[in-house]
Design a protein around this nucleic acid. Structure first.
Lengths: 107, 107
DNA sequence: TTGACATATTCCCATATTGGAATGTATAAC
DNA sequence: GTTATACATTCCAATATGGGAATATGTCAA
């Protein structure tokens, strides 16, 4: 058996380095498929496919603009990952006590 | 071409749900391979392989204890993931505020 | 309508991944 | 030494994955 589908799990979706790069790029600004392909030097079909994976798991927002499709990172879904990894933070606290401010809102 | 190796990238290592379960279990206490297999109802070879992946990327500590091998989560490496996902946190605060004011307005 | 442009989809290939069975190996118990 | 225990390793099958080429679809412009 293979791993849980990349299209249903945000953790799996960000396992691919290029998808993380896309998210990083889209965190700054909304961009079209072509702009992403240019910026990251990837083929267009490849970019489209990665964006679909990201969209399936809710990591990006999509918007149609004429014949272009604009994408933008949805940081809310990234919170799932941030929260999960934060559960192991017990030993960090001595170094970063101020992370507490995040924890307040979390639980 | 396929994805970057699961053995060199923490993001890829936690993409597998069972590996996350192992990390969650090992966050509480140090455990042997057999204990993990029992607790998560997995086969022993499978557990061993997952633990090796986790060890390669530094997500667990290992210790030999007689004929047993004890594993424990290394939360420091999880920080890589926590930090990365935290870079997208810009909008969480405003979102929280919105939810909060919305809840207040209801009363 | 025709043509150009932007993106999506399909098909194919090489590779990676996981789990299980069988087997190997190291350590402890007798 | 012999045996049992606890893991690790190897081999295998089924499936998932990403990229590129070719093609299809959709949208704007003239």
């Amino acid at each position: 058996m293979a791993r849980a589908s990349t299209r249903s799990d945000p953790f799996n979706a960000i396992a691919e380095p290029r998808r993380r790069h896309i998210l990083e790029l889209l965190a700054a600004d909304e961009r079209s498929v072509g702009e992403i392909a240019d910026a990251l030097e990837m083929g267009q079909p490849s970019v489209t496919k990665h964006l679909q994976v990201l969209h399936h798991v809710g990591l990006v927002h999509v918007r149609r603009d004429g014949r272009r499709t604009m994408y933008r990172t949805n940081s809310d879904t990234l919170r799932t990952i941030h929260d999960w990894s934060g559960r192991f933070a017990q030993h960090w606290r001595s170094q970063l006590r101020r992370i507490k401010s995040h924890a307040e809102g979390k639980r």
